[in-house]
Amino acid sequence: MDQALNILLAKLLAQRFIPRSDPLARRALVDETFREGLERRLDDCGMQLLENPYAQYIAIGLKPEMEDWVFGEGENWLSNNMGLPRDAIALLVVVWALIILPKRERQIARAAQVGDTQSDLFGADKPITHGEEVSSGVPEDAIYADFGKKLGGKARFAMNLGQLAKLGFVVRRNKMIYEGPLLDLMLDYSKLAPRIINGALAEVLQLSGTQLALDTEGED
Rank of each mutant, 00 (worst) to 15 (best):
P181K: 07
E219K: 14
N81I: 06
A193D: 00
L164A: 02
Q163D: 08
A14Y: 08
D43W: 09
F17A: 15
G37Y: 01
L207M: 10
K126N: 12
L182K: 08
L164P: 02
L151Y: 02
L8I: 06
Q113C: 05
G46Y: 04
D87H: 06
L187M: 13
D146V: 11
L49Q: 03
S79W: 12
R16S: 04
R86W: 15
P23E: 08
N6C: 06
G37N: 11
L84H: 08
L185W: 02
D116N: 07
P127G: 09
I143C: 03
G218S: 15
P53Q: 07
V171H: 04
A165K: 15
N198R: 12
D68W: 09
K63T: 08
D43L: 07
E39V: 07
L91F: 08
I89Q: 15
L98T: 08
P23R: 14
R172A: 03
I100T: 07
A88N: 02
A28F: 04
L42D: 01
I197P: 00
K166G: 00
L49E: 01
D120I: 12
E203A: 12
E36K: 12
G123D: 03
G218I: 09
G152C: 12
V95T: 12
I7E: 12
L167E: 00
S208H: 12
D146Y: 02
K154R: 14
L214P: 04
E67M: 03
K166S: 09
L201D: 05
G148D: 02
P181V: 02
K166Y: 03
D2T: 15
E105L: 13
K126A: 13
E179Q: 14
A109S: 10
A112E: 11
I108L: 10
M159F: 14
Y144L: 08
A14P: 00
Y189S: 09
R27V: 01
V138G: 02
F71T: 12
G123I: 02
G209C: 10
K191F: 02
L207K: 01
L121H: 05
G123N: 02
T117K: 03
E217C: 11
A10D: 14
R156C: 11
I177L: 04
M82H: 04
R195L: 11
L183E: 03
R156K: 13
A59T: 07
F17G: 06
L101T: 00
G72D: 04
G153I: 06
D120F: 14
N174M: 13
G61E: 01
A142W: 12
W96K: 10
E73K: 14
I7K: 13
L101R: 02
K149D: 13
W69A: 12
I177S: 00
E73V: 15
E75T: 03
L205M: 09
L50P: 00
L183I: 09
M1G: 11
V170F: 06
E73N: 09
E179Y: 01
P64Q: 03
A28P: 08
R104E: 01
E39C: 02
L13Q: 10
D43A: 13
E73T: 10
D31C: 08
I196T: 00
K175T: 04
L101W: 00
E65T: 01
R173F: 08
K150T: 05
Y178W: 12
L161N: 00
L192M: 15
E140V: 15
P127L: 09
L151Q: 07
R172T: 04
W69R: 10
Y54R: 06
Q56S: 13
D188P: 01
R26M: 08
R106S: 12
K149G: 09
V171Y: 00
A109R: 14
I197V: 15
N80R: 07
